[in-house]
Structure formats: C-alpha cells, structure tokens
Design a protein around this nucleic acid. Structure first.
Lengths: 236, 236
DNA sequence: CGTATTATTGACTCCATTCAAAGATAGTGG
DNA sequence: CCACTATCTTTGAATGGAGTCAATAATACG
C-alpha cells in the first residue's frame, strides 16, 4: 500500500513571489521544492490544524481562504485572522512544539507544508530561507500590531479597515481589489472585529447608503476605495 | 580614539535561562558571547530605538523596564507592551529592515544586542540559536494573541489580567510576584489596556476595596493572586 | 417545499467615556 | 527647606456608542 506523492515545484507556482520562495535564487527554490510537502486539499469547515495539535511545520495557503480561531477561558471563539492564498501560518508552533490556535478552511482550500522535521536541516543548509522565514514572521507581527491598534478605534473604522485590508491583500495576489465573496457570516465578521453581528449589519447598510460599497449577501463590491480607506486613515 | 568595549559573558548572566542563551550548550554560549554586543545603559525616557529607525538587531533587556509605543493615523500613541528584564524585542525589524514601533526606557535600563549584521553568520553557524530565536519570536506572538483576545473582554478583566501577567513574569525572573513598582501613569495603563485613565483609577480603587490589591501611588501589592486571576479566568 | 440558519431592523439598556472640578504628588528654584 | 508650579490622580455627574433583546425577513439547505 503505497501512496504516490506529487513533487512540489515552487518555481512553477503563481505565488512564488509572495510565498516560501520569495527572494530565493533558482537553485535555492529547487532545494526547497524537495523539502516542501506537496499540497493537500480540504473542504469548507475542515481543519488545517487544531489548537493543541503537534507542530507539523509552517504552512502556506496555496488556494482558498481560512480562518484562524482561538478559544478563551469563557468558551468563546475569537477569529484572529482571515488568510488568503500565499499567506503563511503556523509560526506560533515553534513555541512548545504545538499550534496555539485552530485553522479552518472557509472554502475548498489547498496548502503546502514546510515540515517541522526539516526545520533544522533548513537552518543548517538554507540560511536564505531562514532569513526569509524571519521576514515572513516579522511581517505577520506587524500586520497583527496594526490590526490591534485599530481594534481600539470606533466600529466604522474597524469595518472599513477590514474591507480595505482584504482588498489590498487580494490585489497583491492578482485578484480583484474591488469585488470579492467573503465566506463569513455577520456573526463571524463581528467576532473578528470585536463587534456585535447587528452592528456589522447596520454598518454595511450605512456604507452602502453612502455609496462606499455594494453588497448582496456575502458578495461585496467596494465602490469607492479611497473614501473607504479615508475612514480609518484620517480624522475628520 | 578607541573605545574599550567590555566583553559580554552570557554564561555569567543571571538571565541566562530566559534570554538569548536559553537552551544552548556551554560551547554555544561562548560563541554567542563573542557575537552579542555588551550592554548599554539608558535613563528613564530615553529611546532604545524609534519607529522607523534602521534595524540594528534583536535586543534583550538586561535590567529595568521599557514600554513599546506605536503611533496610529490619528496621532495617538498606543502602548503595545511593557517589557521586563530578560525579554527580547526587535523581531519586527526583519521586515523592511527597520523597527516599526518605538521602545522607551521606563527606568534606568540596560540592554544587550544581537546585531543585525551578525544575523547571517548566526543563521550559518549557530542553528541552535536560530531555532531558539524562532521560539522566542513565537512566544511573543502567543503572548500578543493572548493579550488581543483579552482586549475584547470587560475593563475589570483586562486590568486584572495586566496585573497578574506582570506578577507572573516578574516571578519567573526572580522578583517578587506580589509587590512591585510600576513606572506607568494611569493614563499609560489605560492607553495600554484600551481604557480611559479614569476607568483605571476607579477599578484600582475597587480592587483595593475588595481586598485584591493594595496600592500607594505607583507601588502595587497584590494581596490575593488567585482571586485576581479568577476575574479573567472564570465566568461567574 | 419546508425547515434551519442567517440577516435585518427597531427599541431599550449599560458599560465605559467624557467633561469637570478638586485633591494629591513630584519636581524646581529661591 | 519651603513655596510654587506642573503633572497626575481621584471622584462625581452626564452622555453616548455599541450591545442586548426581540421580532420579522431573507437565504441556504436537505
């Protein structure tokens, strides 16, 4: 009983300039292509990993989206972040050799894996990737900090920032910056932003009335990106 | 004109089991002692680095405390964290080769430096330290996540958590868990916790009335650690 | 097609903020 | 060493932004 594994070729990947291979030479990309485990596919609702699972490695979303969830002492779920294609997750696993939050597919999703057991090998032999991993990890910290600082601002700024942040990140990945479908309920958006679901609903309606966005159910079109961005960028 | 630099000896350092040398062999500690820049001393109010400064390296607080500050689009300061002896800072600098927040001494403070220019050397030659740096960085991310999740809870839970978190971290570093002087104004505490300074003042008073703490100006004594911890741990 | 989940909308409530004023503390110079 | 000033803290009263509750509407799903 042997399973055939497809070989990874990071060099062919459309995400090569934002994912693991970022900044590496062709030679180095060949090396890591042999280390990285080929992509696996999950359906909506399936777990990439669960809080408390053993650290398997740093993962990269190849396609689809995911939500990161942490549970607090009161049994409430907290959506820490939404991940898009090309984004990495699992850096928290280096501490205690286990994951500290859960990652769940929001769509059909595929991901690649830089295995934990290859990590020492990488540290020894591919210092450029090591540096790049620190850079990725550092970027994540900066994004989180930014989100945290904004989480102290009023509801409308938080929602505006969330939408613009998605738009920016989608554009960087070659998707439309102005139109997307977000597989999140109002409840989940509210949870992520620290708002009641009713508040999210009311604000989306207001943004639509002000001709900033158009939405139908989970499909969102941003009509006026600059004005939506201005909501959390400038004080009026 | 030559400045004499004292040599670092991480092996002699009282913080060796929580700082850079954590988990390293005696041999490795010797190696990094030659790489790490000896400690510098700052007075209260002086900057360790400023937001936007070039990345000099990852730093370790040797003695004293510091606050990390970020500015938002509205010109408001946000205190991201309070750092205690043995804690590392600067991991955010790997991204864009600059620091993304400021670090300011709250007391007379000294710190050591793992220089940015030695980083590639370390990645090549001291993989154990590389791994340990990831572990440190990962721990920081987990602490921040924990703080973030709690920042959505009511004011009293946030303040209780802040006090217990300081107590825990101080104890781990060999200081008293129940008594300390915190060089922060009510304004700064409130800023860090996302609360108005008046709210901090009122809550501290309530905690004192409930015999959870005793305080006089900036000196705080925690009388009942378990009950204070229970405030943010259990729902009643 | 019927049922369950999700979304909208309105009315009411509350926690924490803001405003304001007095009191305490620390730092400075005569 | 004390007076003076600036800063910080406490306390009370009023306000408001977002949450909760509740009922209806829309959408998704088996």
């Amino acid at each position: 009983m042997s399973l055939k594994q497809n070989k990874v070729n990071c060099n062919n990947c459309s995400l090569d300039n934002i994912c693991f291979p970022r900044g590496l030479s062709l030679e180095e990309i060949k090396t890591i292509s042999q280390i990285i485990k080929p992509k696996k596919t999950l359906q909506r609702g399936e777990y990439i990993f669960r809080e408390g699972d053993d650290f398997r490695g740093v993962l990269a979303i190849k396609s689809g989206t995911a939500k990161l969830i942490s549970n607090d002492h009161h049994g409430n779920e907290h959506i820490l972040n939404i991940l898009l294609p090309g984004e990495l997750l699992g850096f928290d696993g280096f501490c205690n050799d286990k994951y500290h939050y859960s990652a769940i597919a929001l769509d059909t999703l595929s991901f690649c894996e830089l295995p934990a057991k290859s990590m020492d090998d990488i540290f020894h032999n591919v210092p450029t990737l090591t540096r790049e991993l620190f850079r990725h990890s550092s970027e994540k910290m900066n994004d989180d900090r930014n989100f945290f600082v904004l989480s102290k601002r009023p509801a409308e700024e938080r929602l505006a920032h969330f939408l613009i942040s998605l738009s920016d990140r989608l554009q960087k990945r070659g998707f439309s910056a102005s139109e997307f479908t977000l597989s999140l309920t109002r409840q989940e958006m509210g949870n992520h932003l620290g708002l009641a679901l009713e508040t999210v609903s009311r604000l989306l309606k207001r943004f639509q009335q002000e001709n900033l966005i158009n939405f139908k159910s989970k499909h969102i079109e941003i009509i006026d990106i600059p004005r939506l961005r201005a909501i959390f960028t400038y004080t009026e």
